[in-house]
Design a protein around this nucleic acid. Structure first.
Lengths: 222, 222
DNA sequence: AAGTACGAAATCGTATACGATCTATCATCG
DNA sequence: CGATGATAGATCGTATACGATTTCGTACTT
């Protein structure tokens, strides 16, 4: 039994998803069915399906008789996404915490050590990549598949948006690394679920609030 | 300018969504593209799109070269969904609380009074309907559209599952009405966001834990 | 009788085709 | 000159058609 080739709609989905995540397709970019189909060497039908999927994930908007465009990102949307992820990832991390093995914790600490090194070398792309991985280790063991799925979607959106270059907050990366360490210590100390949730959420709302403050807006109430 | 007729794929989506929510299509039911298409008097293409959308919402599963079935619901899935909704709706309600008008609060109190009456008359379908509406009033003003969207999806799933008759926990409806009252009092008293979130979440985890306890399982750590 | 091989029917995946709708361009009119 | 309306081109929405894959029943083998 040979492994089944990926369907055209899968291919289209992967292609578009990757391009959006990489920022090759900037927000507002018009996705023309025929053009994408031609590029992939397939008809428009599977492309439509792929776009519907991306729409469901919030990466593109699709209007009747108008077409699809890469979802526009304004500051408000970006911040709303961060806030949502704060809630979801906080819960995911809290639920996963009791299930983390010693190996998991060691991996997290190792990644955070790498992150610290990135600060010295000033390597933002690598920092972002490692940061994502760090968080993944902490929430991946979450036993609730729905919550896990929502975390993934949140990260997808955030990555797609991040590509459209939001300015970084100076000094935030450094405090982020410190917060990682504290979070790991908290888990190692056997903190309660609600304590872990609080800390994990705060880690994210701190970033969010830094952005809000930079815009002269009040912090998130969460 | 006449209003545009809903597209076939919209129609298919609405139809299937409604039938699943109403429980006419039980979990595990096989959705055959051709059959649905014939019933709607359209081709299979728009039906595929509709099913993809339902898949993205978790209401159906769709496997390559196999087809779509209404998502099977086991107790575990149901409970995971409730847990997720506890987190999301808790946040939504907390964020909405400061934005509730006096009219909103009055409506919520009125609905809860109705709920209380339903207890006497023993009218479960009406109770469920009013209960949904009560919660909607409390979270609808949530200023974060993502969170609001997730709440809606969560309710959709829960309603679809609920149809497949999960046994009700005796006495839970009554305490639920009391908790509603307490939640409203808390908001009226100008409680902090985190207090409201805690209460709103607890309201849901209480139900969840009642189910878990009935199955002899430990309560959710959230 | 249980298991396997094969063929037919059912169903899915997608290419093609064409009408419907939107957008842009340009002529016409006030 | 600006507004309005008509026309052409682009793009979308969906019907139809057909090859690909799976499923199921039946005959055959051990």
């Amino acid at each position: 039994m040979t492994t089944l080739a990926p369907s055209k709609s899968e291919q289209a989905y992967e292609l578009l998803h990757e391009r959006i995540a990489k920022g090759e397709l900037v927000p507002g970019y018009r996705l023309v069915l025929g053009t994408i189909a031609a590029e992939l060497g397939c008809s428009t039908v599977p492309v439509r399906e792929a776009i519907r999927r991306l729409e469901a994930e919030g990466l593109v908007t699709f209007e009747r008789n108008i077409g699809a465009t890469v979802a526009a990102v304004d500051a408000e949307l970006y911040l709303h996404t961060m806030e949502t992820l704060a809630v979801i990832e906080g819960a995911a991390t809290a639920l996963a915490a009791p299930l983390l093995s010693a190996v998991d914790m060691a991996e997290a600490r190792a990644i955070n050590a790498e992150l610290r090194r990135c600060l010295e070398d000033f390597d933002p792309p690598r920092f972002t990549q490692l940061n994502d991985r760090f968080h993944a280790v902490l929430y991946e063991r979450c036993p609730n598949p729905h919550i896990l799925d929502l975390v993934h979607r949140g990260w997808n959106r955030l990555n797609a948006m991040r590509a459209s270059s939001f300015s970084h907050i100076p000094g935030r990366a450094r405090s982020s690394v410190e917060e990682h360490e504290q979070l790991l210590d908290l888990i190692d100390a056997g903190a309660s679920t609600s304590e872990v949730e609080k800390a994990a959420r705060a880690h994210r709302t701190n970033t969010l609030n830094a952005y809000l403050a930079a815009d002269g807006m009040p912090p998130s109430p969460l």
